[in-house]
Simulated assay, not measured.
Amino acid sequence: MPAPERIPPRSVTDLDLLAKGELTVRGQVREASNAVLFCSVAYEGEEASCVYKPVAGERPLWDFPDGTLAQREVAAYELSEATGWGLVPPTVLRDGPYGEGMVQLWIEADPSASLLGLVEDEEPGDGWKAVGFAEVGEGRTALLVHADDPRLRRLAVLDAVINNGDRKGGHLLPTADGRLYAIDHGVTFNVDDKLRTLLWGWAGEPLPASTKETLTEVGRALASGEPLATRLAQLLTAAELDALRARVTGLLGAGRHPAPSGEWPAIPWPPV
Rank of each mutant, 00 (worst) to 15 (best):
W62G: 03
P9N: 04
D148T: 01
Q104R: 13
P271A: 11
D66T: 05
W264R: 15
V145N: 11
D14L: 10
A259Q: 14
G86K: 13
T211P: 09
R94V: 05
Q71V: 00
A160T: 09
G57E: 05
E138C: 00
A147Q: 14
A130R: 04
V41C: 10
L69H: 07
G67Y: 07
N34S: 14
G96W: 09
A221N: 08
S261K: 03
A147N: 05
E213I: 10
P206H: 11
V145P: 08
G225K: 07
Y98R: 13
L199K: 00
L222M: 00
E22A: 15
T237W: 02
P150W: 02
E240N: 03
R94H: 11
L17R: 05
Q28Y: 09
H185N: 09
Y181R: 04
N163V: 05
E5G: 10
T141A: 04
A134I: 15
E263V: 00
A76L: 01
I107R: 12
L173R: 03
S80L: 03
A48P: 01
A76F: 11
R30V: 14
T197V: 06
V29T: 02
D184K: 06
A238P: 11
D14Y: 04
Q104S: 14
I162W: 04
G67Q: 10
S114Q: 14
T188G: 04
D149Q: 08
A221L: 13
G170P: 05
L143F: 13
L37I: 06
W200H: 08
E73V: 06
E213P: 04
E78V: 05
E120K: 13
V12Y: 05
V41R: 12
A254I: 00
P9A: 10
Y77L: 00
E31R: 12
R59I: 13
I183P: 11
V145D: 04
V103M: 12
Y77S: 10
G253S: 15
E46W: 01
G165H: 00
A109L: 08
H146L: 07
Q71W: 01
R151E: 07
V29D: 12
S33I: 03
L152Q: 12
R167F: 06
M1P: 14
W106I: 03
L172K: 01
A243G: 01
V119A: 11
D14Q: 12
A229E: 07
G201Y: 14
G21R: 10
G139A: 08
R154D: 04
V88Y: 05
G165K: 10
V119Y: 04
M102I: 08
H185S: 07
A113P: 05
W202T: 06
F133H: 13
K168S: 03
A142D: 03
A134T: 15
T197Q: 00
G253R: 15
L215I: 03
E81A: 14
W264A: 09
T13R: 00
S33H: 02
A75K: 08
S210Q: 08
E120R: 15
L87R: 01
A130I: 08
R167C: 07
